[in-house]
Each structure stands twice: as C-alpha cells, then as structure tokens.
Design a protein around this nucleic acid. Sequence first.
DNA 1: CATCAATTTCTATAATGTAGAAATAAATGA
DNA 2: TCATTTATTTCTACATTATAGAAATTGATG
Lengths: 110, 110
Amino acid sequence: MGSSGFLGEFEQLVLLAVVRLGQDAYGMRIRREIEHRAGRSTSIGAVYATLDRLEAKGFVRARDDSSGGRARRFFGVSPTGMDALESARELQARMWAGLRTRLRRAGRKA
Amino acid sequence: MGSSGFLGEFEQLVLLAVVRLGQDAYGMRIRREIEHRAGRSTSIGAVYATLDRLEAKGFVRARDDSSGGRARRFFGVSPTGMDALESARELQARMWAGLRTRLRRAGRKA
DNA sequence: CATCAATTTCTATAATGTAGAAATAAATGA
DNA sequence: TCATTTATTTCTACATTATAGAAATTGATG
C-alpha cells in the first residue's frame, strides 16, 4: 500500500468512528461504536493496532486524558485524516457512479 | 479478515471495474479502467492477484475466451459478488450517515 | 521464422487485518 | 488498607490483502 495515503477498509471504519465519537473517542468506545453501527464484531487488538497505524500516518493524534477517572487514550482525527476520508469517499463515489441500476438488474437475473 | 465476506479496499475497486466493464472485463482492461476512473496507478500483478482471490471466494468467475484473437481471461461478477458489493455499500452508508457536515466543519477549523 | 506487442503468470515482499492473552490501574466493598 | 472486580490498554503472533515487476506465453506481423 506504500503509505500512499489510501485507507484500508478497517482503517476507514475506525477513522469514521473516531469522527463520530468526537470527544469520546477512545479504544473500547471505538470498538463498541464499530460493532453497533457496522453490525460486525471486532477485537480490541484490531482496533488498537489500527489506531496505532493511523497515528503513525498522521491521520489521528492521541490527546492526553485530563478527566480524573480511569486513564484512557483519547484520539482525534487530524486535518490530514479528514482529507483521507474525503478522498476515500470521492473515490467510492466515482467508482460507483451510475452502477446501482446495473447492479440491481444483474442481481435479479442471477 | 477470515474470509468473512468483507471486501478489502482494492478488492472493491476491482469488483466494481468488472461490473462496469461487463463483457469486456479482462486483466489489462480492468487495470486501465481502475487507473482512469480512480486516478490511481496500479500494477498488473496487483490486479491479477486480486482477481484470483476474488475468484477463490466465489465473487467473480472466469469465462473462457471465445473470441479468436489473443487469448484472454474474461471475468464476470457472481451473484455472491454482487451481494458483497451491496453489503459494502450499505456498510459505508451506515458509517457515513450524518457525518458529512461534521466533516466539513472540522475541515474548516483545522 | 524472428520479432513485436499484448496479455497473463509467477515470485517476492510490504501493509493491513485480526484475535486473544497479558498487563495496568481505577473503583469497590469488606 | 487490601483483595477483588472491572474497564482499559499493551503486547505478541499470525493470516490476509496489497503491491510491484520480471518472466513466460501467445497471437500478429514483417
């Protein structure tokens, strides 16, 4: 993938979950969010490994936990990360453009 | 990924290119289609490796080349493959739902 | 038949995805 | 206070996917 700025499938899920959760984006919460919204089970290890990789690419940054409670690692999406999300979305739009009807037709006759 | 039916990022691109190309979907052509539409360079090896994996999963099937010319390997998307595409699209829709404005806001202030 | 051009195969490696056990540390109740 | 529970993160290991490019194949062409 050559760090070319493209987002893998799961990376995209995690990044979107971080956007959605806003101030509340930390590992376990992100995991739950993905499981709920995507309806797909995932492991906590998968989430953290992906967060670490996203951080290494500069797509998310960890901010320190200031709340008194249990120490947690909160994440936020960086401007670069936002760009990556936008690009991914645009790419998908281009690739899908005009294909929905064709897909439905094919699905019926299959 | 455990062959859980999820499509990787590039797998999705290839599958969509096969749908779009219809009768004309063979390796080199798929490569060109992706490069044009996605505006992203890719290698022929990447395309074939992905086609092989998609075939192993039953998402595409190769049909024999009946045209007289240079022997080529044509591909078509199977019903299962169509389902996988639909699922991927639905998943994306769910994950993105209601996020565009938030993304734009964040992009501005960043 | 020699060469060319288009296509596919093959080989090798990097990046991403995935799970689950182990470690950490706050909270709780005795 | 201390043992226990509970929520969270780290760590380790491995499977799958992504990627490139050289080599092989085969029709076409001179």
